[in-house]
Amino acid sequence: MARVWYRLGPILTVVIAIFVLWYAGTVALNAPWAHDKAKRAGVELSFSELVSDTMSQQKPKLPAPHQVGQEIWKTTGAMVAKGRAFSKRSLLYHSMVTLSSTLLGFALGTALGIALAVGIVYNRTMDMSVMPWVIASQTIPILAIAPMIIVVLNAIGISGLLPKAVISMYLSFFPVVVGMVKGLRSPDHMQLDQMKTWFATRGQEFWKLRLPSSMPYLFTSLKIAMAASLVGAIVGELPTGAVAGLGARLLAGSYYGQTIQIWSALITAAALAAALVGLIGLIQTMVLKRMGMVR
């Protein structure tokens, strides 16, 4: 019990502190508008009236956590209860749109990243010529050219999922390349020599030594790649003109000043990111345990 408290206590404290600050911020940021309204109505606000008003505005500067929670429930759980889980007003629908392009981009990026890493490890020319560009490619703010990728791919007739997935792919291949190169090179000389004394072919060396020993590195990179891929999918949805997806919800919310909608999309995106990264973490523990690599 004491150990659980030692680990969870501080985290709980910080989380509670965040909520307290959030509520305080709600009151502070929304107070001017509440005062404004009261002045026009010609009434004095008592403190408790002020607080309750700041918590229940239609378009607050900062919505209170419970308002966001209600909005999320209204657009997910309540929609499911009404049997309209995937109507266009449902956050589930938008999450699915974002999720599908995130996963496609993540799969493409991981495949590209692993392929590049294998090439880099086994081919000296590729190592010397491609690796610096892989690193340089990430100093380019790729998200900035997201609109162009979308428009250009649309113009040649590719629309829908793939353009967004391309952006996710671009963001997610980098951590995989770097991690896998490190991982595939992690067996030391002793182990490589041992493979040589066993007369192992290059293929055997790859499948039986290099690939297994790169697994811990792979999973660490996959977590980063997944988070990056989600960001790519959300930004990729912005220039399509707010059709569908969490990014589109963000943009639509910012056009119409629907702060509660923005926040609920944001929280949903955060939950999605946490779930995806957590899922990879789970697979990681399972795989590494079976491989006998968990300490």
Partner: peptide
Amino acid sequence: RGLLPVGNFVAALPIIGMAPI
């Protein structure tokens, strides 16, 4: 001990979504 896990968590979130706000 409290801020490190929370910070790590937040660093993985799509913070760019805060932009419109």
